[in-house]
Each structure stands twice: as structure tokens, then as C-alpha cells.
Design a protein around this nucleic acid. Structure first.
Lengths: 337, 337
DNA sequence: GGATCGAATGATATCGATATCAAGATATCG
DNA sequence: CGATATCTTGATATCGATATCATTCGATCC
């Protein structure tokens, strides 16, 4: 029982180690380790005793030590592309829902989530991760190649196929989102649909393709109205320009709820009835759209589930299982428009 | 040069260690360590040579080993309260901006951000963190006490003083947000202001207090109109009920942009002019409000900066510096209402 | 010229946990 | 009763990095 510590080179609040517990319990370190990890190799009584002691003294496992010994980090890095001021701001609720799903799934699998922005991603801790998840828009171009070089299991959130080299992608099935919008319009007999959005965004291009293809199967060709902003104003403006050009249309599929709401406002101003004269479908099913008057019909993507899926894929890759890209189905929430 | 490895108990992709580098460079491990950490104790030439080798072979520092030796984790855990069910949908966007600020500040200080949801927070890795940041609504009641017991440096996002035991709080100055709204109304000569919101939420109560107090200094007493939902409909409904009760009012301070927009819509329906007859101020300065017609005046909170501040406080605490709670000033963005 | 100093490098111990192998104790069997 | 199997525990080595102390070598000093 030597009470005095020999030295204290790196001062820190002294935390209990397994060795300390071992001494307290009158057993060896290894027995403590086994007891705490529920190993069947220790006597039940010993196990109880050690665990009780651990609780009583507030023992905390040293994660670094374990990870070092086990040669793994039990960590997945999530790299988020966050442009502070850009077209699609981080005000979008979706990254957070995605993160929620990721975090939930990974932590319940005993993994930690290391959150990083693009700049910070060169940090050593990221390289030490067992796997990588990439989120954000600019991600698919350079970032994929950049992080791919790390040689870690990696899953990317985004559009399928695109740049579809060999990395795994999870994303919302934008094409199918366009298809179900088209189906809806067809089922209620619309013949002159309009698409509002910016096909330069890969996601929106997919929506457009799905929309166009499905309509084409019924001999209908929609009008493409390009709009770069996804604001309410932009939607208003879009419809006004249609009216100014005396275009005939009876349905609008907008690439965001905001666009859709703007369109509806403009329609009302023009004396058109929604949905009697013109039917409108938005995208993202935002709470705002749901409480709009009239309540907006919209294509919903389940972000939370997307996060869960991303997490599962990385975990599978980490464990050496084969993994494939996957697109998540979207659903159409039909409300009053 | 023994080529065969003795054993391989824990198989993993073989990664270069300092010992390997040392052998390649013909120096000892410690010299490598010093060379890579820019220590002045090594000859400049040696340092260059070792660093070049490290780059060439893609050497990666083993973070666990370093953390173990250094007895620290260089990690701050962020615990996010995420209720999937919405209720307070307006809260969705803010945690991400906050996270952005936190992440940016911490990683640039060489720290890692460990993201956790409430359930996962018991995970060992959280206890291993050097510090804790708590985000989310339910946080202030039990969570603070719960995590406080860990004895780690901890900073909480929320309302000041409240439950104000001894932990550090960073938050938006809601009271001051109410004050500046009041000041604005006073400066443009409004005499009959209305407050719409739910004072049961601590943040909103603060806004109300600030609003009321500032007005009181000029002998004006606002009307409190309680609304539990923060939707557009709720705002519409609020104004209609005012009209039905034939209440006289010339200004509205709403606790969310959505409420404000609903209010404006109802006012327009009632034939009132905004801002001529009634002036309206919202809260949060959402992009949606900015692109509303007419563009909404609103109280802005700088979330990103809040995140930075949270991060700085934990870091300061970790380094043993004294730290105080701090409320961030809000600004009034005056647009057309 | 011997002592002293500084620069550069190395040997060793250490952080806290766990894998591996060995050994003691007890039980079971022929 | 001796031998083997089973259960339980321990000794030791190891993961990869760094702090500490020791050493070497050349330069400088009086």
C-alpha cells in the first residue's frame, strides 16, 4: 500500500484505472477487464463484486487505451459540407434529420460520431476513423476522390450513379419522386403540366427526368420552366411569366415547397383556383407547406431514415460485408392542392 | 531484416507506425516523433528527411496512442436533444447552424467533435471527452444535473439564469430581442402593440418581459395574445380573434416568423394595410420571411456565432480559465413590415 | 588542455486496456 | 488413486506514441 505517487509528469484529475480497481477488489487487472466486459471466463460472484466496485467508485473506461489495444477506433467521421451563405443554406432542416438518423444508428451500435466540416477534415482524428460518411452538395465532385484516397469505408449521400465510380451512395430517389408527381397528375386527368426548378442540380434533373418519362408514357410532354432560386418570389415570378406568355397549363410540379407556394400565390392573384384550375405539387414536405393555405401537396423524403441507412452501410462496410448503393423511395403526401 | 511477422493477433490493414518510419529513416522512434511534431530538438535536415518519408509513405498518426500517452482526448462531446416528433418545428434549423459554428471552432483548435443524441450519451466515449456541450430544449431540467455529475467542463445552450445553479450558459438574449422590438414600435409611434406567443416557453417569456418592460418605460401596456402553435394558421387565427373582439391595435410582435406571416395574411384579408395600419415584427429572420410579400421585419439571432461562442467557452474551461455565461445580442432586421 | 556547455539523438519507462499463454484449483472419470 | 477435463485466475507482452533522463559529439571557454 504505497500511498505516495512516484511522479506526476502529466497532471490531470486522477481517474480510476483497472489496476486501481484490481487492487481494491484483490484480483488482477485482467480479471477486472473480463468482469467488466461480461466475459464468461470469470466467476459470477467475482464479476458482481468487481462491477459493484466499479459503479461505486465511478470507474470510467479509458477509450484511448482500449482502442489502441484493439487497433480500431469505433468511430465514424461525418463530413458535412456547410457553405455558410449559399443558395441552399444550412437552414435546410434536412442535414440535421440526416445527422439524427446517423447518430442514432451509430451510437446504438457502439460507434461514435465524429462531426467535421470540410476544412477540419484533414485533422488526424478523421484519418483515425473506421469509416466515413459524406454529406452535402459539393460533395460529389472533388470531395469523393479526395476522401476516397484515405482508403476508408465510405458512404456518400447524394444522387445515384452520378460520378458513379465505385463508391457507395445513399440518397433519395429523385427520379421516382418525379414519377409519382406525374402519376398523380395523370390520375386526376391533367394534360398540361409544368415543371419548375433548376435541372443543373443533379437531384432536380432526376426529378425532371422521372416526371418527363412517366408523362411521356401517356403521350404528354410537360413544359420546363427553369428557375434558379428556390424562393417564394421565384415561384410567384414563374407563374406570372407563364401567364404573360399565355401558356395553357393545369398542373405545376415545383422543385421545392417554397416555389410551389409562390406559384399558388400568383395563381390566386390571377384569379385561378387551386386545385380546381391548376393542381400543384411541391417537394420536401416542409412543415411550412403543410400549414400553408391551402395545405400543400408535396413529395416527402424521409431524411431520418436516410441517416439510418447511411450508418448501416458504413457499418456493413467496416465489417467487411458487401454493400450496394441504395435510393430511398419517396412518398406523395396529398393535401389540398 | 526479418521479413516475417511473428504473429498477427488482431488482423487489420497494416498501417505504418513511427517505429517503421524510424527504421526507414535510420533513426530512433523518438526522433521521428520529434521531427513530426516540429520539435526544435531535432536537426533541421533530419526533420525534413523524416517528414518527407512520412508524406511519401502516407504515414498516419495513431490518435489513440497519442491520447493515451498524453492523457487527454482532444474531444468535446456535443449532446443534442432531438425529438423526432415536431411540436416545435421552428426549432429545426437552428441546431445545425449552431453545430456548424461549434464544429468550425473546435476543429480549428485541434479538437474533435463527438456528436451524440441523448440516448447514446451514456456511451463510454462521451465520458472520455475533455468537455461537454449541451444543446436542445429539454436540456435545462434534468440533463444539466445528469451530465454535470460527470465533472467535465460543460457549457449549455439556453436561457440565462434559469436553473442558473453554477453551470455556464450561452444563449440568445431573448429579453433584449423583446426590447428592440419594443424600441422599434416606439420609434415609429405605435401606441397599441400586441404580443403573440407562448410565455410557457422560457425563451418566449423572456421576449415578452423585455417587450413589456421597455414599453412600460413609456407608459404603454401591450396586449398579450397567447398562441401555442407557431404555425401560419395560428397567426391568422390570432389576428382574426383580435378583430372579432374589436380590439384596437397598431403593432404586432410575433414570436416566430410563421406567426407573423399568418398575422399579416389575416390583416390583409381584413383590409388593413401593413405596415401603414399595423406594423409587424417576427422572430428568427428566416429566409422564408425575408422572401415573404411584403418582406418581413424580424429579430435575428446569429446561431453560427452562438456555436462559436459555445466552443470557445468549453475550450477555455478545459484550459482552466474562468468562464462566464453570456447572452448574445440579437439584431432587428427592418424590412417592409 | 581540461572543463563546460549546447546540440542532437537515443534508451527506457509509461499511458490503460486486452490477447495470449500458463498455471492453480477443483471436479470428473476409469 | 492417479489422470484428465473444466473452471477460474494470473503473468506477461503488446498496441503506438511521448516524457524523462542519459549519452554522444563537437565547440567554446579560461
Amino acid at each position: 500500500m504505497t500511498q505516495a505517487k512516484k511522479k506526476q509528469p502529466l497532471a490531470q484529475r486522477p481517474s480510476l484505472t483497472m489496476a486501481d480497481l484490481a487492487e481494491l477488489a484483490g484480483v488482477s487487472k485482467i480479471t477486472v477487464s473480463r468482469a467488466l466486459s461480461e466475459s464468461p471466463l470469470v466467476n459470477a460472484q467475482t464479476r458482481e463484486r468487481v462491477q459493484a466496485l466499479a459503479r461505486k467508485h465511478g470507474y470510467k473506461l479509458n477509450v484511448s487505451a482500449r482502442n489502441l489495444r484493439l487497433r480500431r477506433s469505433q468511430t465514424v467521421a461525418v463530413i458535412v459540407e456547410m457553405k455558410p451563405s449559399s443558395e441552399r443554406t444550412m437552414w435546410d432542416p434536412y442535414p440535421l434529420s440526416l445527422l439524427g438518423g446517423i447518430s442514432q444508428e451509430l451510437t446504438s451500435a457502439g460507434y461514435s460520431v465524429l462531426l467535421t466540416t470540410r476544412q477540419g477534415a484533414s485533422h488526424a482524428a478523421v484519418q483515425a476513423a473506421d469509416g466515413l460518411i459524406l454529406l452535402g452538395q459539393g460533395v460529389r465532385q472533388d470531395a469523393v476522390r479526395l476522401y476516397g484516397k484515405l482508403g476508408l469505408p465510405m458512404v456518400v449521400w447524394g444522387a445515384a450513379g452520378e460520378g458513379g465510380d465505385n463508391h457507395t451512395v445513399v440518397g433519395s430517389d429523385n427520379r421516382q419522386g418525379g414519377v409519382i408527381a406525374a402519376e398523380r397528375f395523370l390520375s386526376i386527368g391533367r394534360r398540361h403540366p409544368v415543371f419548375i426548378g433548376n435541372p443543373d442540380h443533379p437531384e432536380m434533373a432526376q426529378r425532371l427526368f422521372g416526371f418527363v418519362d412517366e408523362l411521356a408514357r401517356h403521350g404528354i410532354k410537360p413544359l420546363l420552366l427553369r428557375r434558379d432560386d428556390f424562393t417564394l418570389e421565384s415561384g410567384v415570378d414563374a407563374v406570372r411569366s407563364l401567364a404573360a406568355r399565355k401558356v395553357r397549363f393545369d398542373a405545376i410540379f415545383a422543385c421545392s415547397d417554397l416555389l410551389a407556394m409562390g406559384a399558388i400565390r400568383a395563381l390566386v392573384e390571377l384569379g385561378q383556383s387551386v386545385p380546381n384550375d391548376v393542381s400543384v405539387i411541391g417537394y420536401d414536405d416542409t412543415p411550412l407547406g403543410a400549414s400553408f393555405l391551402p395545405p400543400l401537396s408535396s413529395v416527402r423524403q424521409n431524411w431520418q431514415e436516410g441517416g439510418v441507412l447511411l450508418a448501416r452501410k458504413v457499418l456493413a462496410m467496416i465489417h467487411g460485408q458487401p454493400v450496394q448503393s441504395q435510393m430511398m423511395a419517396t412518398t406523395l403526401v396529398v393535401r389540398s392542392t
